[in-house]
């Protein structure tokens, strides 16, 4: 593991932890984008170039912007009279810590034998070929899901029709 990996890991963890801990919702989203950039860079570091750029494009270009729009439309970034965390935040954090402890214990007590292969060279053509042959059906289903989500999101978020005045 190179030093670059640890820097990127630190960036990711800082960004995401700040996203979950800061008070102001917009600051949270901005910290989150930092975490996503770190994660995308980790993907690049692991040799998955296409996934890394897709991560930036989808999460920063779409999800973060969408979240920002939602925050603006629900006015949840204004001055906060009430606390940012729910009443049960101690229980929630405890559960998360326990989950992490269990996962870390399991991971560190498993003997993993990673194949020490050279960095795999994945070209976009290979990904395209695999996507169009082996994974053609999942791709179609994903397209259907995205279309359904698009229409569904619009219908759910659309203001209810005003009743005509009698």
């Amino acid at each position: 593991m190179s030093i670059v990996f640890f820097i990127l890991a630190a960036l990711t963890i800082t960004g995401t932890a700040a996203a979950m801990a800061l008070r102001n919702a917009v600051h949270c989203i901005l910290a989150l984008t930092l975490g996503f950039v770190g994660l995308a860079a980790l993907y690049l570091q692991l040799g998955a170039q296409f996934v890394g750029f897709t991560q930036i494009m989808v999460y920063i270009g779409a999800v973060a912007i969408l979240a920002v729009f939602a925050i603006m439309m629900t006015r949840s970034a204004g001055p906060h009279p009430q606390p940012a965390f729910s009443r049960t935040w101690r229980t929630g954090t405890l559960i998360a810590v326990i989950v992490f402890a269990v996962l870390a214990y399991a991971i560190s007590h498993t003997t993993l034998a990673p194949a020490t292969l050279p960095q795999p060279e994945v070209t976009v053509n290979q990904i395209g070929d695999t996507l169009m042959h082996q994974y053609a059906l999942p791709l179609e289903i994903l397209g259907l899901l995205l279309t359904a989500a698009l229409i569904g999101a619009v219908i759910v978020a659309m203001p209810a029709k005003q009743e005509a005045p009698q």
Binding site: I13, T16, W89, G92, T93, F100, A104
Partner: peptide, 15 residues
């Protein structure tokens, strides 16, 4: 695992 736990903590404790 750390990333997952951060996400879980946030999902359980944010208002």
């Amino acid at each position: 695992a750390l990333l997952f736990s951060i996400g879980l903590a946030g999902a359980l404790s944010r208002r």
